[in-house]
Design a protein around this nucleic acid. Structure first.
Length: 414
RNA sequence: GUGGCUGUAGCUCAGUUGGUUAGAGCGCCUGGUUGUGGUCCAGGAGGCCGGGGGUUCAAGUCCCCUCAGCCACCCCA
């Protein structure tokens, strides 16, 4: 900590950045509520065990990216790297089994100790949704449709592609995994170092490799569709059919893999070319095994999470705020009247910027800087006639308005 | 965790083969205007040249270390 600077990979959100952030979470929330989802907020840290058990011991997140520390009571705690585990834990410890289906959304910071780059920070924010307790493919469809609606409401849907895949059920996964390991083991000396490592840790990941040599081998690798059980295939067909029904476009990408162990069946990502290497803007899938793994009753679930910083890079500026009215009081009596008026006008719903000191010139300068619509001047002259001078800051025109008429007069400047 | 690029004023950036007091534009402040912003004119403030060490008579400039940012790998939102 040589200097007073933010911790690596963290960022302050100031002004327009903070506003864009709130706007994204706000529109996501509006859409989610239209789908009948409600808010849920779980703690930012949990017992380390919560993440270890849910994310799987082989995932990168658990093995090298968690912010884990011991608290004063000697417990091992971890800053949440993602949101689903906390929701699942709350589902179990809060006894929410009787309230199925549980439909919730959340929003907040997540923490992962990664090397920062574009679209990747150590503290970042996600908006996510979970639909727990519905095993039917219609749940997958609904949740994906909501994601598309949110991206659309943010004006970025057309810049993204929905990539869809199925990981199948447990028997499908096992058979396919075995087939892949067999196929790639024979070619092991031709694989990249990374992929050789993946072969033991997470063979499915090889399919996603960017290495040119790997890609050539992948082309002839076994096809998952040949290893799917009938049930898994039927489920995936139903999801695709549902998406067609609600008019959500997608492309099949058989190489989409989830990094976290708890996923099965549907896996999807909304990706974009606009963000460089970190092109995934929203991703999720079905996690029917998760809650049971954590020691709860066997319960189905689907959900996704979106990266707010990544979305913000695509949406640009937040929608404009209503322009303010600037109140400038001159002299003791004028300042007092300006203060009184600020309260009255705000209660009437106007956005009011009160000038605290510095006289007329500074007041107008300030008004100009915040792009106010009008300035109201109140000095001894005005007070003497029970009026105020209202200056339109675009045209420069000034009119005399009785103080009692100000509220109505200014409503036009909103 | 690995590799590449980059750190000079609040911001964007110049700074010659190492050579006197480190510059510009924008922004900010003051005045021109005792009650009139945005334009214009005049003036002003603001820099451990990311930090530490080294080479040299001399380092913003060369070397090493370190921190941070960016880009890619990896991973993922």
């Amino acid at each position: 900590m040589a200097k007073l600077q933010p911790v690596r990979g963290t960022h302050d959100l100031i002004g327009d950045d903070a506003r864009a952030h709130l706007a994204i979470a706000g529109t996501a929330r509006e859409v989610a509520e239209r789908y009948g989802f409600g808010p849920m907020a779980t703690p930012i840290f949990e017992f380390t065990e919560v993440f270890k058990r849910t994310l799987g011991d082989t995932s990168d997140i658990v093995t090298k990216e968690m912010y884990t520390f011991e608290d004063k009571g000697g417990d091992s705690l971890t800053l949440r790297p993602e949101g689903t585990a906390g929701v699942a834990r709350a589902f179990i410890s809060g006894g929410l089994q009787n309230e199925l289906p549980l439909k919730c959304f959340y929003h907040g910071p997540m923490f992962r100790h990664e090397r920062p780059q574009k679209g990747r920070q150590r503290q970042f924010h996600q908006f996510g949704v979970e639909l727990i307790g519905v095993a039917e493919p219609s749940a997958d469809v609904e949740v994906i449709a909501m994601a598309a609606d949110i991206l659309d409401a943010l004006g970025v849907l057309s810049e993204t592609t929905l990539e869809l895949n199925t990981l199948g059920d447990a028997p499908s996964k096992e058979r396919y995994r075995a087939a892949l390991v067999e196929y790639f083991s024979d070619l092991s000396d031709k694989l990249s170092d990374d992929s050789r490592d993946r072969l033991v840790r997470n063979p499915l990941r090889i399919l996603d490799s960017k290495d040119a040599g790997d890609r050539a081998l992948i082309a002839d690798a076994p096809d998952f569709d040949d290893y799917m059980t009938e049930e898994a295939a039927a489920f995936f067909a139903a999801v695709q059919d549902g998406l067609d029904t609600v008019g959500v476009a997608y492309t099949r990408n058989p190489h989409i893999v989830r990094g976290l162990d708890y996923y099965s069946h549907t896996a999807f990502e909304f990706t974009t070319e606009a963000l460089g290497a970190q092109g995934t803007v929203l991703a999720g899938g079905r996690y029917d095994g998760l809650i049971e793994t954590m020691g709860g009753p066997k319960t189905a679930g689907v959900g996704w999470a979106a990266g707010i910083e990544r979305l913000a890079m695509m949406t640009g500026e937040a929608p404009a705020l209503p322009r303010a009215i600037t109140l400038i009081g001159l002299g003791d009596a004028g300042e007092r009247e300006a203060l009184r008026l600020s309260s009255e006008l705000r209660h009437a719903g106007l956005t009011v910027e009160l000038i605290y000191k510095g006289g007329l010139k500074r007041g107008l300068k300030r008004a100009d800087r915040i792009h106010a619509a009008a300035a109201v001047l109140i000095g001894d002259d005005e007070l003497a006639r029970g009026a105020a001078t209202v200056r339109d800051l675009d045209s420069g025109e000034q009119v005399d308005v009785a103080i009692t008429d100000l509220k109505d007069h200014l409503a036009a400047h909103r």
